[in-house]
Structures are given as C-alpha cells and as structure tokens.
Write a protein that binds this DNA or RNA. Structure first.
Length: 434
RNA sequence: GGGGAGAUACUCAAGCGGCCAACGAGGACAGACUGUAAAUCUGUUGGUUUCUACCUUCGCAGGUUCGAAUCCUGCUCUCCCCA
C-alpha cells in the first residue's frame, strides 16, 4: 500500500535535508504532510512545480497531502532567501492571489476526492485571523527564544550579512507564524511532516521545535524534509524565459512558450530536470539518459522532458499542438510544411504564438518591416527596437532573412492569409490578413 | 537628539558646469559556430526620426547659469557613527 517515498525522492535528487526518523515514519503508516504556498502572485510559476510534484509523489506513495495557502503569512513576508525587506501586499490583492493559487493547485490535486488519503487545501488566514497579538505572544512567542530564532540563516543573513539592510520585527516574526501553522495542522489534521524548498528548512524546524515545546511530556512526532532549490548549470536563475517568469497558467505563459522553455534546457540540466519534473520511472530515465549521451543532437532528454511536463501541467492535446507548432516553426522545409496545414489546424497549432490581425486594405497599402514588427503590431516594444533587430540581421519573413527596406506584399502570404515573422530563431509572430 | 554618507538607466556602478542618452561590469536580446545545447567570438541595449536632429531620463520640488546628472535651497527616503 505505502511505497517508500523517500527512496523514490532520493534517486530523483529531490532530498536536500531530512530529519532523522522521517523515512521510518513514512514507511510505517499513512502520513499527513504539508507544503505551504505563498500568495505573492495570483498564479504559480514553475518554481512552485517542485513542491506540487512533491505533494503528488506523496499521494501516489499512499500518504495524505495538505496544500497550505499562506493567506496570513503572505501578509507578513518571508525573509528566507531575501536580502531586502519585502513590500506588503494589500488585502484585496492577497485575497485574489489566494483564489488564483487555489485554482492552480486544484489542477494537480483533487481536493474533492473522497479517498481517505485525499489531498486537502487549507488557508492559514482561517486560523490566524482571530488570533490576537496578546494570545499569540503568550501561547506561541513564549515557547521559542529569540536566541533560537536569531540562529536561523534567514535571520542571520539580514542581521549580520555583508550589506545589511536590517529586518523589521514583522519579518522576524514570520518563522513563528509558519511554525504555528505546522503546530495547528499537527493538532487538527495529525499532520506530522512539513516539506518545502531548502530555503524553508529554518522555518520548518522552528515548527517542529514549537510542536515539541507545546506538547511537553508527550511523545510527539514532527518531521521535516526539504528538496534542493532548482539551479541551472550556468548559474543563471531557473524559470525565466525571455526575461519573464514561466507560469503554470496558459493565460500568462502560452503552452507553446511553456513547451519551448523545457525544450531549450541545456544537456547538463536536462538530466537533472527529467528526474525532478517528470514521473517517469528510474529504468525509463536511465535509458533516456544513455540514449541521449550516444546521440546528443537528437535531444531526446529535452523532448521527453518538454512532453512530460507540458502534458502534466496542461494536457496531452495542448502538448501535441505545441510540439507541432515547434516542429513546423523550426523545420528546414518550413515552406512546404506550413502549406500542408488547413486553416483550422493552423490556428489550433499556433494558438500560443503572438498574432496580429489586419485588414486586407491596410495590408495592400504597403507594409514595411518596421510597421509589421512594431508600429502597427506592437510585437516589439518600439520602432527603434524593430530597426535595431533589422540592423542585427535578425528578422525573417517566412523564415527568410530580410532587411529594413523589405516591403511585405501578397506574395508573402501563406494560404493567402498569414505571414510568419521571426526576430531571431526563437521569437515568432504571426500576421493575419483578414 | 548630535554628527557623517548617500539616492544615476533592468541590477551593480562611474561621472561632479558644456565633449552625457550618460564610462565600465553583470544581465538581457541578436549574429557567427552548433543540436532550438554548452562554451567561445561579435554586435545591440531610453523614445521619435526625412539618420539628422529633436524629445524624455541621473530621488522630489524649486533656483543660479547662455548651459546642470554635476552648483544653491527646501523636501522625501536609505545607511553609518555617537547619545
């Protein structure tokens, strides 16, 4: 019934720190464990994919996952990993963020399930909102010494770091509030394990400590486990594409872009990511890695990674469209391939590619490249940028390089209607003449 | 409360009366090479543009000057030292 979760996570490279006894606990009985999500935005990006996947692994291993949305903690601001004091969000924003995050989480975990290890979703605002400051100070604050709190890295870094910016009392309190969450879930849901990214270790252990001190004399179980933060081999920040975050929401990051993000993973990272971001078993992954090594130019790892993650986050058909769009846009026989698509398929396949519609009269008046890239369409942020791109020899019309003086005509139209514009190989735009 | 330092483009960071849309570094984007990889080399990195000029930007508001990111006054904010 229960599978060895920790062993599974270990070979995937998803265990960073683990409290002694955690593995035994998970192997002995169905265990309730939680992970918190910060409502700093109204959706989640791929940075939150790891904790989501952890919860799914947890459930698949037969345990009960709890997803906590930090409606209360979001009002405070977690100092972990931050070198600056955070700006506070107003309540309205926070509420809509909480809702947005609940929606995203619901796509991966079925909170309506009736199974006995069904996932549950909680919001810490529900139990924090009526907790008075005095009560909190007496019941919670009294249990933990300031000395203990100060020893946490997140605090030390802000107090004694190189360029200290100081830290407000508000943020200092954060770990206590998060610690209380764990205590609350422990008490009301028998939740004995908190997981999270490695930057959460300090906050999580404050929780286990608090649980022990609030249950003096009782044999209390409380465990912690963190997974490594996702890094990239070249040291740049994981999860950014063309300067922006990669979101789990098709409205914010199109499926095409999402798919492209994973496809562009470097060899070195792909090997690591396929273990973390997919649910493929060890044999399959080992085989893929071996295949990739013998023929790296085929990019089997990247393709499988992109397929698996896109299907998990979006859907099989979304993945198929994104893959088809990609294979056409990057095809050597682009002209022929594109002709084979009928109108409906064309639109479906290129759904995630930025598009602009214009009337045929507008078009026949003569469309120069600056107009097509920016002035009329806003594909690029300014005419200047369009000119720059043209000067850099980076612009293609239907995959053929053009210069600034090129004028678009009806002979450029594909299927009498579309023109594919490229800025570099990776930025594609579609011009639709109606 | 007293004393000192500072606020410059995405970030760090020069500039200290005209030569400043502002050195340099990082990042980002692009070109070449490749495998839509990595590394490397190169270019670009405020806006409009008839490519020449103009417009907006160096914390905020005023002032001095032919002319200010640079000088003066006030304000706001940040950091450091002393009490």
């Amino acid at each position: 019934m229960i599978k060895n979760l920790i062993e599974e996570l270990r070979w995937r490279g998803m265990v960073h720190d683990i409290m002694p006894g955690t593995e035994e606990q998970l192997n002995n009985e169905v265990t309730t464990a939680y992970i918190g999500f910060d409502p700093t935005s109204n959706s989640l990006h791929i940075g939150s994919l790891v904790p989501i996947i952890l919860l799914v692994h947890l459930q698949r291993a037969g345990h009960k996952p709890v997803a906590l949305v930090g409606g209360a903690t979001g009002m405070i601001g977690d100092p972990s990993g931050k070198s600056d004091e955070r700006n506070l969000l107003d309540e309205a924003t926070l509420n809509s963020n909480v809702e947005g995050i609940k929606n995203v989480l619901s796509r991966f975990l079925d909170f309506n399930s009736k199974d006995n290890n069904a996932p549950i979703l909680v919001n810490n605002y529900d139990w924090m909102k009526d907790f008075s400051f005095i009560d909190f100070a007496r019941d919670v604050g009294k249990r933990i010494t300031v000395n203990y709190m100060m020893s946490k890295d997140s605090v030390k870094k802000r107090l004694f770091g190189e360029d200290t910016v100081g830290m407000s009392f508000t943020e200092f309190t954060y770990q206590l509030i998060q610690g209380y969450d764990f205590y609350y879930l422990h008490k009301h849901f028998n939740c004995v394990l908190q997981m999270g990214g490695s930057d959460q270790w300090g906050n999580i252990t404050t929780g286990t400590e608090l649980i022990r001190r609030m249950n003096v004399g009782v044999d209390t179980k409380a465990f912690a486990m963190t997974c490594p933060l996702i890094t990239k081999a070249d040291g740049s920040k994981f999860g950014k594409s063309e300067g922006g975050n990669v979101w789990l929401d098709a409205d914010k990051t199109s499926v095409y872009k999402f798919y492209q993000f994973w496809l562009n993973t470097s060899d070195e990272d792909a090997e690591k990511y396929i273990k973390i971001f997919t649910f493929l078993d060890k044999t399959t992954i080992d085989k893929l890695i071996a295949e990739h090594k013998s023929a790296p130019h085929l990019r089997i790892l990247q393709k499988t990674l992109a397929e698996e993650v896109t299907t998990f986050v979006h859907s099989k058909s979304d993945f198929e469209n994104a893959e088809r769009a990609s294979s056409i846009l990057f095809s050597k026989s682009f002209k022929e391939d594109i002709q084979t698509l009928d109108e409906g398929t064309f639109l479906e396949v290129f759904e995630g590619v930025p598009q602009f519609e214009l009337s045929s009269t507008e078009f026949s008046e003569g469309f120069d490249m600056v107009a097509a890239l920016s002035a009329k369409t806003n594909f690029l942020s300014s005419n200047g940028e369009a000119r720059r791109a043209l000067k850099e020899n980076a612009v293609m019309v239907n995959k053929e390089k053009v210069s600034e003086d090129y004028i678009l005509t009806t002979s450029d139209l594909i299927n009498n209607r579309y023109i594919i514009l490229n800025r570099g190989k990776k930025q594609t735009f579609i011009l639709k003449v109606m």
